[in-house]
Structures are given as structure tokens and as C-alpha cells.
């Protein structure tokens, strides 16, 4: 029950005396307690002592809050310190991640295009072998050339057993050269070849998928970086003498075109 709901003339208790010292009583109740104190000198002395104590504590500790504001407590500085700590943590994680990537790449280099490397090792190895063999071709790089683009897609799709659309990578600066059918460990495979303005060739190797998807997985040596991933329909390996970022950008374009 709240103080205000009770009779202002009820007997005075210790709780009243405490609240009276701190000015927490209603005006009515406060007047009643004050009148009561006139006849109770012991309680009255105690109240005096407690009020003096309040003043003493507040007065003695006041200087602690009268200094200038230390720079470390400027909210702006606290915020900056917090941000710097967060960045440091992020950088540590990024560094660890970079080491991991370097380790993985080192593993690839050490193994060459080992067939034992990873679940898609054989796929990547086939793709890279085919890439190296045909990008060097001057006169017959492809079986079906770019002007029969629609036929190429239908033909590869029929042989692989999955619908194949030839990705348009002109926004990425790549012109279609054409494509060819190749034998693969898991049945027929297709290779689609593109070329950029500098004459560098990029190939997209396709094979029937297994129904499950996978994330992008990198592997490669300096002159032929490979990026592999799977959609439920198809397994893809993108190979080319490009930086990883460029390959990822191209792969994204293919992936989104494929999903469309």
C-alpha cells in the first residue's frame, strides 16, 4: 500500500523517520511526524543526527564530482576506443582467415592438380587440363563457334542431360568464343570458352550435377586459377588467368544467370 493511501495520522514508525530525513513523506504526513517529534526528543535527536550525516556525506564527497571531465570519459573517445577494439578483433580474424586460404592454396600447389584433393578434385583437374589444352589453340579452339550459340547450348544440354544456357558475360568484358563436348569421368562434359579484350581466355567447364549445391571453392596456380561450385543441375568449374576477385565476379554473373 502506498503512503498516500494510508491515514496521515497513523502511529509513527521507523520507516516514517527514515523517510522524513530524506524528504520522502507527503506534506500531510510530514507535518504529522514533525508534530510528533516535538514530544519525542530522542527520536528528534536521531533525526537531527541523520540529517547532519546526509549533509556530511554529500559535502565530503562533492569534490569527487567537481573535477573536470577526464578525456577518457568523453563519449566520443569511449566510442572510438570501442570501435578500434572491434577493428582489431576483425583484423585478427581476417588475418587468420588469410592464413587458412594461403594454407589451402599451398596444399594445391604441393599436390599439383591431384585427383585426391577434395570432393571435386577430379572435376577441377579435368577442367583445368581441358582449359590448358584448348586455350592454346589458335585455329581450332572450339568445336562450335559463337555464331551458333543457341545450337551450342541445346547440343551440350542434350549430351550432358541437363538444360544448359550459354551465359552472356559481355558485361564482364568477355566475348563468347564457342564451346565443345568432352569426355569426363562422370559422363559427357562441356567446355564453353570466352575471351577478353587482351586475348586472355576463360573457360567454363560443365558436368551433370548431383542434385546438391555447394559454395565457391578456389584452387589454382598462377596462370590458371579455378573456381568450382555446384548447382543442383550442374557442376561448374571456371578457369582462367585472372585474379580471384575477377573470377568471383564472373562466377556470380553465371550463377545468377543460371538461377534466373
Amino acid at each position: 500500500m502506498k503512503q498516500s493511501e494510508r491515514s496521515p495520522n497513523r502511529p509513527v514508525g521507523d520507516d516514517d523517520l527514515t523517510a522524513y530525513v530524506d524528504g520522502e513523506l507527503s506534506a500531510e504526513r510530514s507535518a504529522f511526524v514533525e508534530a510528533w517529534l516535538k514530544d519525542h526528543s530522542e527520536a528528534s535527536d536521531r533525526i537531527e543526527a541523520d540529517r547532519a550525516l546526509n549533509e556530511r556525506l554529500a559535502g565530503a564527497l562533492a569534490p569527487l564530482a567537481e573535477t573536470s571531465l577526464p578525456a577518457r570519459f568523453r563519449v566520443e573517445n569511449v566510442e572510438n576506443a570501442r570501435r578500434a577494439r572491434r577493428m582489431a578483433r576483425f583484423n585478427r580474424i581476417a588475418a587468420a582467415f588469410a592464413l587458412l586460404l594461403a594454407g589451402a592454396a599451398g596444399g594445391w600447389l604441393a599436390n599439383g592438380w591431384s585427383r585426391a584433393q577434395g570432393p571435386d578434385g577430379h572435376l577441377v583437374a579435368d577442367a583445368v587440363t581441358a582449359h590448358r589444352l584448348f586455350v592454346a589453340e589458335k585455329r581450332h579452339p572450339v568445336e562450335v563457334s559463337a555464331d551458333a550459340k543457341d545450337h551450342l547450348g541445346a547440343w551440350l544440354g542434350n549430351r550432358i542431360g541437363r538444360p544448359v544456357e550459354i551465359p552472356d558475360l559481355s558485361p564482364q568484358g568477355l566475348t563468347l568464343v564457342g564451346g565443345r563436348l568432352l569426355p569426363g569421368e562422370n559422363g559427357p562434359s562441356g567446355q564453353i570458352m570466352y575471351q577478353n579484350a587482351a586475348g586472355e581466355r576463360v573457360t567454363l567447364y560443365l558436368q551433370a550435377g548431383s542434385g546438391s549445391e555447394s559454395a565457391f571453392a578456389f584452387s589454382g596456380t598462377g596462370e590458371a586459377q579455378a573456381l568450382a561450385w555446384r548447382s543442383p543441375e550442374l557442376a561448374f568449374v571456371l578457369t582462367g588467368p585472372l585474379g580471384r576477385e575477377q573470377l568471383v565476379t564472373i562466377a556470380h554473373a553465371i550463377y545468377h544467370g543460371d538461377a534466373r
Binding site: 569527487l64 567537481e66 563519449v75
Partner: peptide
């Protein structure tokens, strides 16, 4: 940042409380 000045107004009292 609106909260900055609002918080700063109480920092010295917070420090006194923390010291005590």
C-alpha cells in the same frame, strides 16, 4: 550524437559513485 551529451552530463556523478 544526441546520447553523447546526455550521458556526459552524468559522468562525474557516476565516477563519484564508482570511487565511493
Amino acid at each position: 550524437m544526441e546520447e553523447a551529451s546526455e550521458i556526459e552530463a552524468h559522468v562525474l556523478a557516476l565516477r563519484r559513485f564508482a570511487l565511493a
